Amino acid sequence: MREIAAMMPAQKLYQRIAEDIAAAIAEGRFAPGARLPSERDLAEEFAVSRPTIREAMIALEMRGLVEARKGSGIYVTQAPPSREDAEAELDVGAFELIEARTLFEGEAAALAAASIDAETLTELRHLLEVMEHDADAPEAVDADRRFHLAIAAATGNTLIRSAIETLWDVRERSPLCIRMFAQARREGVMPRVAEHRLILEALEAHEPQAAREAMRSHLRRVTTDLLDATRLELMKQAEADFDAQRSRVVARTGL
């Protein structure tokens, strides 16, 4: 499993890990029904973070290669499809996206704080009110995007704004990202108004370091929410599978 360095550099890190595990399954190192090592063990083996392993597991789950079992772990369900089909199904994951957003948007917030104008601050206050009114509404999700892009535009640098807008576009187009954020919404994870307010307050005070830290803190919290949401999703799927299997057994035995 360690021989991931020789794979194509254009691949995302979690993709390379997913492909390496899929190859191990195809080679018979993990047969159908076999339990995969724990997230912690895989993270140590590949020398990556647990969020990266989580993205790889979700990608493999989307391809139907693994499944979660209640109180037990992640198990192999079948041999992988052809490599061409596998690559078409993998895309950017939410954890990778947020890592990039933290880098770009943290610095963008700091830069914007130095020169943001009154008109943009008024716009940000309005968007915050939209998010505050009904965090579950589509308008609030759109306001969340517009809030972050308005800050990017306030830097006065078109390349920074374009880069951050591209990251948000990836969030809305990547199948893996869409799935992970949908899981988070099902678990009640919505735009965090209080954290956005702290960002706005730092911008109003024209304090670059405070704006940078407020943005980074917000995005770190999003990462934590996603970790919790995807873990709960795997647990719920395992419980549903267990209940379905139990129902079949009960029906066959007449108990």
Rank of each mutant, 00 (worst) to 15 (best):
A56Q: 00
G73C: 11
S174Q: 03
D142K: 15
E187Y: 06
A113H: 01
T155L: 10
E239N: 07
D169G: 15
E19W: 08
F46P: 00
Q78P: 05
E27S: 14
G188A: 04
A112V: 12
E132F: 07
W168V: 08
I199V: 08
A88Y: 01
R125I: 14
D91L: 07
R221W: 12
F104H: 14
E129Q: 15
K12E: 14
R220W: 11
A113M: 13
E89L: 12
F30M: 05
P208W: 02
H206T: 08
L232A: 07
E19H: 14
E132D: 02
V222R: 04
Q237G: 05
E207M: 11
S72R: 12
I21T: 07
A244N: 06
G254T: 00
T158C: 06
Q209S: 10
V249N: 01
E105S: 00
L149S: 05
M235R: 15
I4D: 00
R248L: 10
E233Q: 11
H206W: 05
Y14T: 13
T223E: 12
A114T: 05
K12W: 10
C177N: 05
T77D: 01
P81Q: 01
H218W: 06
L42G: 00
L234G: 15
D91Y: 11
K12D: 08
E132N: 12
E213K: 09
T230N: 09
F181K: 06
F242M: 13
T253L: 15
R212C: 11
F30H: 09
D117C: 09
H148Q: 02
A47E: 13
S38M: 00
E96A: 11
R50A: 10
G64C: 03
E84N: 09
E172R: 07
A86T: 07
A205N: 06
Q15L: 07
I58V: 08
R145A: 10
E139H: 02
E201P: 01
R54E: 09
V48A: 01
E19S: 11
R179G: 05
I74W: 02
S38Q: 05
M180Y: 01
T253D: 08
T52H: 03
L149H: 00
E89N: 04
A135I: 03
A24Y: 06
E87D: 09
A251N: 08
S217D: 11
M7A: 05
A109S: 12
W168L: 14
Q237W: 08
L36Y: 00
L65E: 07
I164L: 14
A182I: 04
I151S: 03
